[in-house]
Amino acid sequence: MKVCNEGFEQEFMDENRDMYAIALTQNVLSGRWKYFILWYLKGERRRYTDIKKFLGDLSQGSLTKQLKELENDGVIKRDVYPEVPPRVEYSLTDKGNKLLPILEKMEDFGKEYGEKP
């Protein structure tokens, strides 16, 4: 899995495994909507149209890009059912479920330190 466009030199990765691990995780989660997609898929399979409706004004192209990246990184699974019209559902993989505690910690931080109404 590539961490950035240029990648890291092997020497850097060997000497800085902790930083590399953080960069790798950040790369998987990078993207404005990925956090919300993962959170929305928590514990439930969702159809493309449901995800699109949940995210509101997000363009079809942007959503498709984010979903493909998450699928390529192995954190979500895409199932296509041969129906007319085709039904597509997304769900978290085991790898995707392992990201949920990170999102939960982000939620906790936001609740504790975010602006109070």
Rank of each mutant, 00 (worst) to 15 (best):
L24Q: 12
L63M: 07
L103G: 05
R87W: 02
E44F: 07
E89M: 12
D57Q: 05
G43L: 05
R78P: 01
W39Q: 12
L63H: 05
F54D: 05
L70H: 04
A23R: 08
N27K: 07
G56D: 02
D57A: 03
V88D: 03
R47N: 04
F36I: 00
G96W: 02
P85D: 11
L24S: 10
D94C: 07
V28R: 06
E89N: 13
W33H: 13
N27Y: 11
W33Q: 09
L55H: 09
L70P: 02
L99W: 06
E89S: 14
L70Q: 04
D57W: 00
V84A: 09
Y48N: 08
K52A: 04
S59D: 06
L67W: 04
E104N: 12
S91Y: 06
L70C: 12
L70W: 03
Y81E: 15
V88E: 14
Y90F: 15
Q26C: 09
I37A: 11
G74H: 10
L67E: 06
A23M: 09
Y90T: 09
I76Q: 08
Q60L: 04
N97R: 13
E15K: 13
W33L: 01
L100F: 07
S59I: 04
Y90N: 09
I102V: 14
V88N: 10
T93Y: 08
N97T: 08
L67C: 08
K53W: 01
P101Y: 03
P82R: 15
G31L: 06
N16S: 07
E89L: 11
K42P: 00
F36M: 03
E15V: 00
V84K: 13
R78S: 13
W33I: 07
D18S: 11
L63S: 04
L63G: 04
L63V: 06
K95S: 12
E44C: 07
I22E: 10
T25K: 12
P82A: 14
R47V: 13
G56L: 01
L92D: 08
T64P: 00
L24M: 11
K77I: 15
K105E: 15
D57V: 00
K77S: 15
V84M: 10
P82Q: 14
R17L: 01
G74R: 07
D73T: 12
I37T: 05
L100W: 10
L55Y: 09
D94L: 13
L29K: 00
E89Y: 15
N27I: 01
G43F: 05
N97P: 00
R47F: 05
L55T: 03
K95L: 14
V80L: 14
G61L: 02
M19W: 04
N72A: 15
G96P: 02
K52T: 00
K77Y: 15
Q60Y: 06
K105G: 06
N16T: 05
D18C: 09
I51T: 05
E83R: 10
